[in-house]
């Protein structure tokens, strides 16, 4: 009974909205050519699976986000630790420049990156890296700064060396903040990815939307769009799930109840779940890299898949 109530509270409005969308098609409230109903959109997604290699584009998009995430982690976190722990004076001198860089619009950098790296895969990934790097960098800095000094002092009084303090006190203390930066970074880069694929790409979900719209395939725009939204919600949810599972001990303010306490319903994530998530991560990454390669080959070989050529024209 309690479960039924929670499900009702959580999903009723969403289901109602989706129902409204479907009914708008059934009763022809809006022009079907401009606003296809839910069932038509889902049907389109199914047909796109074989027609335009939807799986390939999905993987290409996801892979770009993941690769840029990995690069920005490699760049941002060591530098943040270096600046915060080793070179604080130097950092205070260059902080203004870094803040300016982080505010600079990534799109106006896109032409610059094209000049640097050509218009290939690297230009897109570097834009995404630029976008996700700054939130990770600054939240790592904030995390290190906000580590309770009492904990560091305690560790010192117990005769812990700087390396032990770093790995046992500072790093775990900063991790929730770092993860928050990762969450923001991934969300931003997924946002930007769609635009980057629209302006200059030959594969990916954003590219499907763009070329479908150029070819007046309205149902396909909606199909790919629905997929992008679902993927975005899914990414958001899985990052939140991971956060509450990894940092179940972290106290946080609940936005609605307004009280500080451990995350509601936070439980330590089991090792199996963690392993499964890591496996999915690696699988998406490797399949995605292969699919990027395949997309490149397909683009250069007109004889392989004739329909594919139609889409690139």
């Amino acid at each position: 009974m309690w479960l039924a109530k929670t499900i009702f509270v959580k999903y009723s409005v969403l289901v109602f909205l989706l129902l409204l969308w479907e009914l708008s098609g059934v009763f022809n409230w809006v022009d079907q050519a401009f606003f296809p109903s839910l069932s038509t959109t889902v049907e389109t997604i199914v047909s796109m699976w074989s027609k335009v290699h939807l799986f390939m584009h999905l993987m290409v998009s996801l892979c770009r986000v993941l690769v840029s995430l990995i690069i920005s982690l490699i760049l941002a976190i060591p530098f943040a630790f270096l600046f915060a722990r080793v070179l604080p004076t130097f950092f205070s001198r260059i902080e203004a420049l870094l803040r300016v860089f982080s505010i600079i619009n990534p799109y106006c950098l896109f032409p610059l990156f094209v000049v640097f790296f050509g218009s290939g895969e690297i230009a897109k990934i570097s834009v995404l890296t630029w976008v996700s790097m700054w939130p990770i960098f600054f939240s790592t800095l904030a995390g290190i700064k906000n580590v309770d000094p009492l904990l560091v002092k305690t560790a010192k009084s117990m005769d812990a060396g700087p390396i032990t303090i770093f790995f046992k006190v500072v790093l775990p203390g900063a991790l929730p903040s770092i993860f928050n930066g990762i969450r923001i970074g991934v969300e931003m880069s997924f946002f930007i990815l769609i635009a980057a694929e629209m302006t200059g790409a030959t594969a990916g979900l954003g590219w499907i939307v763009h070329s479908a719209s150029a070819l007046n395939q309205v149902t396909m725009v909606y199909g790919a769009g629905l997929l992008i939204v679902v993927l975005g919600v899914f990414l958001n949810r899985s990052l939140n799930f991971l956060r509450s599972g990894l940092f179940f001990w972290k106290e946080e303010r609940d936005p609605i109840a307004g009280i500080t306490g451990p995350l509601v319903g936070a439980k330590r994530i089991s090792n199996t779940t963690l392993a499964i998530m890591a496996a999915v991560f690696v699988a998406v990454l490797s399949i995605g890299l292969y699919e990027i390669y395949r997309a490149e080959v397909m683009l250069n070989d007109p004889t392989v898949i004739p329909e594919y050529r139609v889409w690139t024209e």
């Binding site: 409005v13 969403l14 769609i194 939307v209 769009g225 992008i228 939204v229 975005g232 919600v233 958001n236």
Partner: peptide, 13 residues
Amino acid sequence: LPLEVLSQINPFL
């Protein structure tokens, strides 16, 4: 949940 879904609708889309 609906607000989350709506906020995920990419402006370029």
